[in-house]
Design a protein around this nucleic acid. Structure first.
Lengths: 218, 218, 218, 218
DNA sequence: CATGAATGAGAATTCATTCAT
DNA sequence: TATGAATGAATTCTCATTCAT
């Protein structure tokens, strides 16, 4: 849909942090992602990962000190990429400098952008959601990214549109608490709960924007 | 808040299906719920449950053939109670026979009712959410309850208010796809993500209703 | 040789601390002692111990939380029994109340007593000696037993014989530093270094006493 | 204390057998000695050794076919140097040709000489002592050195002093069995058991000689 | 000569489950 | 009904060793 690089980054791209990654290491990551997304971290054994990756079990532990290290090396980049770069660079430029953009346009672009990110990273997103509940490290990373990157950027954005008189005068955090579940709920339904349904994605995004702006009441 | 019995049922009440339950069995259930809610099913060992329940390991398997049986005996009643009885009895009567009730009132009552159920069953809800992803049995139970109980009832309800001209003319399943994340998102934020925040619950519910009806746009 | 109960206590008796010990637990201890004495703690695997004991590997960990726990449960009683009860009860009575006993007699009785203890506990002694170097816990137990039980008792004893003018006027700790290696060296040579030699034990003890008292010089 | 070259040889000197040793190889040896002395051979891993030596794991196996080879390449020279050269060259000359030397003088020189060797090689000595119990190869090397080098030399020496009427008429092997633990016990106490104590080394050696000659009795 | 990724056997430990009491 | 000792399969992780570079 969009060619925004931060959104369409492939899964391996999202995870590759160091330049040096042997082919085995990549296979380990891929196998781990598949299995953990499917069965959960606790229910996935390192021997299973090794088997699917086609490596010896010991090889996993040469690259990741512990099984948890492996999980975090998957989860942390996803959090950073899901939350941080949304508003980076061009995207923010668009919103702030193209003054003619309406909140409706902004919402549409925003959701579309995150839509594409989720679309290319379904298993990673699944893992983050599922393990968030159990690992304080992940919660902390999530919190940090939220507080430092997402909230300030959104806050600023909402203020812009409040000044333009395009938003009700509700506290920003209340607005976010309303919009967030709507957007996240849409993405979850689209990609995780009912991925096989025959969706008209663009229409669905527009409908979501409309709902956020005007609700379902007459 | 309300005295609707289906909402304020206590956790043990939700789970007690047969009349006969020894005190040990109750302790096992309580320990299992605490631990599984906290660490997840896979990461919780039967020996841990036994220790916290103050019973011998063998005792667990006297009451539940397998560890998974124990999980299902926790999860199934929750699903049935969360989804089914919402619209049962008096509640439905109210909606359908007290013709003066507006959709706004209905939404308010509905959310308040589910609010109270979640409030008295946080750990159970946590478990269902977390394990839903991994156990086909749970997914099936959830789907069944949704299709047989929830969707038809809501469908009927929405039609009533469409006829009363209180709702936009959007397909019912689209409406549900919008409302559901909003309500669920609100309850999750309230009880699981930020349970310790100082909430003004009634105001929050009203704000949610307002959002569902009219969005955040001006 | 002597019927002093503290000396002739059997190995299992030395280790049995709680009343309840299943036959499997005893077999585990026996197997562990044999193997650790032979190959050392680090080089002995729990699977080996289980195999020799004829139990499942898991059974070991039902009785001892960790492999190290197993080691300590072997080593600690040996230290306590080797060091503490030497001078207990009757033995001390003999030395202090039978005023006619010479230092020579005392030494003879003392060495004979420890001789018998070592004789009935060769593998246990081996283990303690070998592992002492690597485990701070064992070193601490050893130090504690030495400082609290052995040194004071010996100190008192030496003073008695100094008063009787049977000992040179050398500081007690110097005397101990001389005698200890002689006695320990004798026992080690006899039971561990050259156990298969055809020893005349009584003669050897007497020769040791003679050496301690008068050396090899003319 | 003395400048006898066999005694004061440095650790690396003791080990260097071939002329060619790369700096990496020396670092490997040093690391291995430190770690094995501290934790024992079994409990020390080659990866640990590699890390401390600052080399790759593979490098160890380029120089030593197996981990055991590495151990033996440490232990064997120590045995040879501890036992053999004592009586070599000048030292033996002194004893045998300087006829005026008393047994007391001989003992003093002997202990002082071994004292210095141990002093410069504490970790090596530790390793030999600890591993002697578990490795037949080491036991064999030890036995061989004892039987071929030490015993004959000492035997000869004792005979000399027996002829000089400076020794009691006890069988030589009994004499050795008495003296050995005394000397070894002294060195162990001095360097391994209580290395941090504030020792008056010369006084201690003289006291040991006196004890060997005349015991502690009056 | 040196590296370090890769291995697979084996280490300690945990686990769900069984069963005699 | 309840116990808890026993199991053996599985789990995470370590290790000595190999080998292509």
């Amino acid at each position: 849909m969009s060619d925004n690089p931060s959104a369409s980054r492939s899964m391996t791209e999202v995870l590759r942090q160091t330049e040096k990654m042997t082919s085995k290491q990549i296979k380990i990551l891929e196998a781990a992602i598949e299995l953990i997304a499917e069965k959960g971290y606790s229910a996935t054994s390192t021997s299973e990962i090794a088997k699917r990756a086609g490596v010896a079990e010991g090889t996993i532990f040469r690259h990741y000190r512990t099984k948890k290290d492996l999980l975090l090396s998957i989860v942390n980049p996803v959090i950073i990429n899901f939350m941080a770069p949304v508003f980076a660079e061009k995207f923010v430029d668009q919103v702030f400098h193209e003054s003619h953009t309406s909140f409706e346009d902004f919402l549409y672009l925003f959701i579309k952008n995150r839509f594409e990110f989720v679309q290319s990273n379904v298993p990673l997103i699944k893992i983050v959601i599922q393990e968030l509940a159990f690992h304080p490290e992940i919660q902390a990373a999530f919190k940090k990214a939220s507080l430092e990157k997402v909230f300030p950027a959104i806050d600023q954005t909402l203020n812009v549109y409040k000044e333009k008189n395009q938003l009700k005068n509700i506290p920003n955090d209340s607005i976010m608490r309303m919009i967030a579940p709507t957007v996240i709920g849409f993405l979850l339904t689209r990609f995780i709960i009912q991925p096989d349904k025959d969706w008209d994605d663009d229409a669905e995004i527009r409908r979501t924007v409309e709902y956020i702006l005007h609700g379902v009441g007459k």
